[in-house]
Design a protein around this nucleic acid. Structure first.
Lengths: 346, 346
DNA sequence: TTGTAAGCGTTATCAC
DNA sequence: GTGATAACGCTTACAA
């Protein structure tokens, strides 16, 4: 009555049911069905819980059990359309196994990354999924994670001894490029992606390898335009390429870049695929709704998220390998590519 | 040495520094600078912290202080491109004020919503931001939130006595429709949005009001096509509309729907805006990169996220009003609208 | 079948 | 200036 404690705790339930806190705890325990208890007691406790609207405090439980059932998800920017499916993959798998997900947008900024990792360790998350890189730049060996038994799983390329989910960017881009080569293209440019990104570097490498496979000359600066990862970057990269003799095909570092190129091509009065063929990467939802529909490499982003959480659970069980898990990509042929106007001309 | 405790705790630091745990706590306290302490002591503690790689346990702190510095963010689906900017708005503001964000995708499913709210209460989050509705369908009065002093803030329309951030969907769609009316259009259809969504209903209402303003006949089923909120929904809605006498302008419930309509129009050999004008809603990033660029209503999504977190902080301070905070929208005129081919014909 | 009590890692209130 | 110690809300031996 006087000075009632703020919220409802297990003690209030115990008092209301006329039992000890241990008994209440037993009713709430996951092993409850196996715990011998008088039926009447159990019912009294359940009733008290209902009436008081009691919700057990997970903090206290976590403190005792040394696990929070919480994981951190660290990525550059959820606004990048590449990430939402990944996030859902992680979250769906996480919630299916009783984990909560703390979202951390870092913009790829090493300082923000470091700050978030610190926060997550202090929150004693059971594990952390890191997508989009940025970790290798961390100062010093991250033994903090060992100290607090925080498991790390990476999505994408990295140089650390942690489990990871990846795709073969080199092979996928090589195959995508080979596809336009097979269509008869020779003037093939590569568009977008900052050199600072290992993903972009891998895709560029795949493009170079495909050129070599096809006996095309080494790609020079005239056929490779680096830039951003987004529509704007693709737009400007494509524009700058259209100045000289325009290529007949564009291999883009990702779909956003490709969609930016679509806009640049339209503005230049060039038609896809009659004048220029375009290939993307990622297969974002828009890829099948632009016209012409975009031929692109489908990345199993959602599945990568799921796989990352599975790896995290394995790591928590002590049964995780640091051997990267490679998920398959697939070239989705749609309508943005066609043979060049005058195949073989020149 | 023997049976060393698993992780490093404040006690280990105290032992290493040869002080009491209270002293370590004082060094770590936010008020540390104001606490009188011998410089040498402080230094010894700091050194011990560094050497042991100690990170204070936020759970223990939270348990004691009755606040977790964590908030829940409940929304239908992060994969819906409308949400990422909102999420970033919330998260940026949250992290700026020391809050962690737990992400909860519900697919709008009442059961998932209820389950997540329960989880969040058990996690003793300080507050919850609910976007995308679905709450009113919860069974019974949510007095659990009162019991555990969990503050709720809504983004979008709702019928609950909680603070909220909203936009005026009716007025915005009315203005957008008035814009195409002003261009001379009379055959104006409304596309997409399930009737179950209050947002969709509001936008439809705005469309109807604009028709009335313009002296157009009440919209019948032939001019209103409900459906999904996404590209697919827009595509099919537009297709079904193109059967009879096609409208000269399409007012779409959102940009995804509009982009779906773009595809349907292209497939039907109709050109935008020569044959049909299109207006969207939301101003997602793609809107300025499709060709023709999409005329649409810009929604300050990121700012809404920020505002939601501000409201949550106000609520935690006890200084929040349940009066909805209305953020302004803006019609962004681009190139998807033009006067109808034969203005006034018929 | 149920209760008592120790302890998870902190902070805050007293003493000294 | 610094140190004991009692909470915070729970789970889990161990007793009864």
């Amino acid at each position: 009555m006087s000075r009632s404690r703020a919220t409802v705790s297990i003690r209030d339930v115990a008092a209301a049911a006329g039992v000890s806190v241990a008994t209440v705890s037993r009713v709430l325990s996951p092993a409850s069905p196996d715990i011998p208890m008088r039926q009447a007691t159990r019912e009294r406790v359940v009733r008290a819980i209902d009436e008081l609207g009691y919700r057990p405090n997970d903090l206290a439980r976590a403190l005792l059990q040394q696990r929070t059932s919480t994981i951190g998800l660290v990525l550059p920017d959820i606004s990048n359309p590449y990430y939402p499916p990944l996030v859902r993959g992680v979250e769906d798998a996480a919630s299916a196994h009783g984990y909560r997900v703390v979202l951390c947008n870092t913009d790829g900024d090493p300082e923000k990354i470091a700050a978030y990792l610190d926060i997550l360790v202090k929150a004693r998350v059971d594990g952390i999924v890191v997508a989009g890189g940025g970790l290798p730049q961390l100062p010093g060996p991250p033994l903090v994670f060992e100290t607090y038994r925080t498991k790390l799983v990476m999505v994408g390329r990295h140089r650390l001894a942690h489990p990871s989910v990846q795709i073969d960017n080199v092979a996928a881009t090589r195959a995508a490029t080979a596809y336009v080569v097979g269509l008869g293209h020779r003037g093939i440019a590569f568009l977008g992606g900052p050199a600072s990104s290992s993903t972009a570097r891998d895709r560029l490498l795949g493009y170079r390898e495909a050129r070599r496979d096809a006996g095309l000359p080494e790609a020079g600066p005239d056929t490779v335009r680096t830039g951003g990862f987004d529509e704007r970057g693709g737009y400007h990269a494509a524009r700058s390429l259209l100045g000289g003799e325009p290529p007949t095909a564009l291999v883009c570092v990702n779909d956003r870049t490709a969609l930016g190129a679509y806009a640049a091509l339209a503005d230049a009065g060039l038609s896809i695929p009659a004048d220029v063929s375009v290939v993307g990467f990622d297969d974002v939802p828009m890829a099948s709704f632009v016209r012409p529909t975009l031929t692109t490499v489908a990345v199993p982003t959602y599945e990568m998220g799921q796989a990352a959480l599975r790896l995290l659970r394995d790591a928590l069980d002590g049964t995780a390998s640091t051997e990267p898990v490679l998920l398959p990509t697939r070239l989705v042929v749609r309508t943005s590519c066609a043979p060049p106007r005058a195949a073989g001309a020149r």
